[in-house]
Amino acid sequence: MSSIRIKAKERKGEVDVKCLMKHDMETGLRKDKSGKKIPEHWIQDVTAESNGKVVFSCAFNTSISKDPYLAFAFSGKKGDTLKISWKDNTGATDSAETQIK
């Protein structure tokens, strides 16, 4: 299963998007039990595309909470596809696609 959960609803030509990404978002400042620093591991870039066109993109720092929540809105219509993808600092990526309701 994808690590991203998306809810996208259209109202009066505007699509409200809420999404949750499952990710540890390690800051690099935390220490484990033996006192060693846990290395940084966080989502750097998030991109949202609707019908292949970028409608929203953002960059995160480590100061975004664990399992990041992101909400935004754009003009679109019911039935369009919405694809959200992220990339973290290790180069790992994930994406999820949904239909706007």
Partner: peptide
């Protein structure tokens, strides 16, 4: 796209 962003920060 609307000028709107919601998230949760540390």
């Amino acid at each position: 796209t609307k000028g709107l962003v919601k998230t949760r920060c540390r």
